[in-house]
Amino acid sequence: MKAVFGLAAAVTLTFLVLPVLAIFLQVSPATLLHELGDPVARDALVVSVRTTLIAQALIVVFGTPTAYLLATRRFRGRNVVLTFVELPLVLPPAVAGIGLLAAFGRMGLLPAGVAFTQTAVVLAVTFVAAPFYVRTAIASFEGVDPQLVAAARTLGAGPWRVFGRVALPLAAGGLGAGLALSFARGLGEFGATIMFAGSLQRVTETLPLAIYAEFARSFDVALAIGALLVAFSFILLLVVKWLRFGWTSPFRFVPSTSA
């Protein structure tokens, strides 16, 4: 049995690692670094970092209270609400794109006229990335021992204080992990962006869009951007594991519940 399982594990790991490794092996590290200096790559990096940071700020400011409410209240239809929150996780990005157009496009329900602007990129990134944060945040708030909250209340702390001094610090690890996950997802956003925001260098062309635009034109630039995203995502996922289990884990190894 050991041999069979070992073989299956070897096949699985090879299959998952090979395409990622291939990006780095196709051209030399020097070439990768050099190609990252390409104006297309540099501009895309700026657009990506800017839009993702704004999206993350929106997600935290609006998502944290939402998650706290959903975690601490029980009401009819809660499951339906939770399902709506989770829906973007499984929706194909193309559906998100067409939905954003139908909602905020010129012919949409709320014609905001934001298509082709960085605002459109931020909206697309927020839509697909927010559930990663909110869902993790709900779980983290639910994990806060209700007895601690009750004790704080009986000792005279108001709801703001309970939230700020008890719930928030206790959930902080999980919130950080959720934030890192949603950051990683937001940085990789492609389908909704290209449909809703279009693609223009320095304005709406994010790193994943630049890979798509460059792969037929300059494969090396596309590879370099790919390598950058791989490295960044790898670091973010490691951060998630540390935040979640780094200093509180009762386990000797990290349980794999990172998504």
């Binding site: 010129r106 082709f116 602007t117 925001a197 279009g198 693609s199 223009l200 304005v203 798509y212 635009a213």
Partner: peptide
């Protein structure tokens, strides 16, 4: 405001 990867995508953005 946008550079598309084939002509049909240009058509779609205008038609919509």
């Amino acid at each position: 405001v946008s550079e598309e990867d084939d002509v049909k995508l240009v058509v779609a953005k205008v038609a919509y």
